[in-house]
Design a protein around this nucleic acid. Structure first.
Lengths: 302, 302
DNA sequence: TTATTCCCATAGACATTGTCTATATCTCCT
DNA sequence: AGGAGATATAGACAATGTCTATGGGAATAA
C-alpha cells in the first residue's frame, strides 16, 4: 500500500544513524548493505527530504535527519524496552498475579502454594483480593483478577471451574460441650444445641441447609458470622456448635480446644476449585500458578 | 530473517488495541481483517504470550497485551509526531536556517532577502552567525551553519561557492576632504592621504593591496578597523579616506556626508557568493533561501 | 603519483512473506 | 432458530524485501 510508512524502515534508519554507517547498520540487522541503502532511500523519498549526507567513511545525519532521529531514537528505545519486558513476562521474571478468594481458603488452602510460587517466581507481584464467591465471579468478569478460588459448583457459563481440592465440613464444639465428645448425634439432637453458621450466601451454608431440609428439618442458626475465624472463635468460647471445614480447624482439634461433634448422617465433601474466565486466555503467571496447585493432586487444568 | 520482530507488526497491534477490533484496525490500515489477524498472531507467537482475548464483539487486551500496549502506544505517538514534523520540515512550515556572514553583508545585502524569507516561511527560525570568511568556512565544515555569504573567490575544494552579487569597492571621504570632490586622483596622490582599511585578513583588503602592488606601490593604512560601520564612521569624521563597497554607503553618499574619491585606475568588482559544503546535501530551508536570493539575478544554484 | 581499501549507489534476479479471497466458526441479539 | 458481526484458517498470488554482482568516489598508504 502507498498509505503510511513501513515502520520497519525506522528500525533501519535508527541503526544507520546510530552507527553512522550503512554497512554497520546492515551488520547489526543481519542484512546486506544494499538493503539498508535501499531502505534509507525509501524513507528519503517518502519524506521528500535528505536524511543523511554520504561521506567516504560512512553517513552523517543532515539537519532534517537529526530531527527525525530525535523522535525515532526514543521510539526505538521504547520498543526495545517493550521487547525486554515481554521476554520477562514470558519467563515469569516479571508481572503480576491477581487471585480472588475467601480469607479462609487463602489461609488454609492456598497459603503454601502462594509461598512456593513466590519463591519460584520472585519477580511476580501477588495481589490477593478477598471476597465472597459472587464477588469473586464479579471480579473475574471485570478482569480485576486472573483467577479465583471458591467452593463448587459454580453455575455461570462464562466461568470455568476446575476442582482441585476437597474439604470435609463437620460440626465442632468447644469444651463447654465436652459431654458430646463420645456421642454420635442425630440431626434432631443436634438442633437442640445452638448452631453457628457462616453467612447466608455461602456455599457451605447452602449445602448444610439442604441436608437438613431433605430430612424435613429446618436449620436455623443461633449465630451467623461472616468469617471462618469467628466461626472457630465462637465455638471455642462455647457459644455453640460451628459448622466448618475440618481442614480449617486441624490445629484446634489437635490441641483439643475443639472437638468434632459426630452425627449419624454422612456429610457430602465440599469441592473447592479454581475459577477462571472461559473465554479469556490465562496470563503466564496464572497458568504457572494453576499448574503449581494441580501438580500435587493429579488434576489437570484445561 | 528470524532475528528481531518486524516493527510493522507493532503498528498493527497499536491499532488493534486502540480500536478494540481487528476489523476496524484493518480499516484504519487499509488492510483486510485476515491480514490483521495474521499480524497479531505473529506477534503472539514471537512473544510466546497471548495479547488479546477474542470476544464476540472484538478483541480485548490481556494483562500481557496491556503491558505491551503501554510501551507501544508511546512509541507510535513518537512516530506520528516524527512524521508530522518531517512533513512540516518538507513544507518549510518548521525548521531552522543557519547562515554565516559578515555584519556588513547581512546588513547591506542579505537583509531584504531575510525579510522576504521570514515573511514567506514564518515557521522557520533564522540564526545569523557573523564571522570572518575563514570562520564561516570553519562553521560550514563543522556543520554549524547551513550556508555562508562571503566575498569570492573561495579556494577550498570542500566548499561550493555560487556568485550571486557584485560589489563595487571605492574610496570615500567625508567633508573634511571636500576639496577632492571634483578631482580624479592617481594612486600616488591617494597615498598622500590617510587611508582607512578593513582588517588584514579580509578579502577586500587583499584585493586593494594587490592593485597597489601591481603598480609598485605599497598601501599602508593609517587606521585599520574590524567593521564596515567603523570604516564609514571614521570617514565621516574626517579621519581619513576609507575603502569600502559603494553599495554599503549609498545612504551616506546620497545624504552628502560622504563622497566618492575617484581614482584614475579601474577597480575590479568584488564578487559576493553563497557558500555551501560540496558534499553535504542542503536542507529544504537552505535551498529555498538560495533560490530566493538567486531569483532576482538569474543565477542558478547547483 | 598509483594502488588499495572502504564506503555507498545501482541494477536485476529471486524468494520471502505480506496480502487477499473464500470459507468456517463462534457469540450475541432479535 | 436465524441473522449479523466478529475472528480464525487455508491457500493462492503478487508485492516487495533481500540478495549477488558491480560500479564509482574518496580517503589512505606506498
Amino acid at each position: 500500500m502507498s498509505m503510511g510508512i513501513n515502520h520497519e524502515l525506522y528500525k533501519v534508519f535508527y541503526w544507520a544513524a546510530k552507527t553512522g554507517s550503512l554497512t554497520q547498520a546492515a551488520r547489526k540487522l543481519y542484512l546486506t548493505q544494499p538493503s539498508v541503502s535501499h531502505a534509507i532511500k525509501q524513507l528519503e523519498e517518502r519524506f521528500g527530504v535528505t536524511l543523511f549526507s554520504r561521506t567516504a567513511r560512512g553517513v552523517e545525519l543532515t539537519q532534517e535527519g537529526a530531527v527525525l532521529y530525535s523522535y525515532i531514537e526514543q521510539s526505538q528505545m521504547l520498543i526495545t524496552l517493550a521487547e525486554e519486558k515481554m521476554a520477562a513476562l514470558r519467563n515469569l521474571e516479571s508481572g503480576e498475579l491477581r487471585i480472588g478468594g475467601s480469607d479462609s481458603l487463602f489461609k488454609h488452602y492456598l497459603l503454601p502454594y502462594l509461598e512456593k510460587f513466590h519463591e519460584r517466581y520472585p519477580g511476580i507481584r501477588l495481589h490477593l483480593n478477598h471476597g465472597t464467591t459472587p464477588e469473586i465471579i464479579g471480579f473475574l468478569k471485570e478482569g480485576r483478577i486472573d483467577l479465583g478460588v471458591a467452593r463448587m459448583p459454580i453455575v455461570d457459563p462464562q466461568i470455568q471451574a476446575t476442582e482441585t481440592y476437597q474439604l470435609q465440613d463437620c460440626f465442632v464444639a468447644g469444651m463447654r460441650y465436652a459431654h458430646l465428645k463420645d456421642e454420635v448425634l442425630s440431626l434432631e439432637r443436634l438442633l437442640e444445641y445452638p448452631i453457628i453458621l457462616f453467612s447466608r450466601n455461602s456455599r457451605a451454608r447452602m449445602t448444610i441447609t439442604e441436608v437438613f431440609q431433605s430430612r424435613g428439618l429446618s436449620l436455623r442458626p443461633e449465630i451467623e458470622v461472616g468469617s471462618v475465624d469467628l466461626l472457630i472463635e465462637f465455638a471455642k468460647r462455647g457459644l455453640g456448635i460451628s459448622y466448618v471445614a475440618k481442614e480449617f480447624v486441624t490445629k484446634e482439634l489437635e490441641e483439643g480446644v475443639l472437638f468434632e461433634v459426630r452425627i449419624d448422617v454422612p456429610l457430602p465433601p465440599a469441592r473447592v476449585g479454581i475459577l477462571t474466565m472461559s473465554n479469556v486466555p490465562l496470563s503466564g503467571a496464572a497458568s504457572a500458578f494453576i499448574e503449581l496447585v494441580c501438580e500435587g493432586n493429579g488434576n489437570r487444568n484445561v
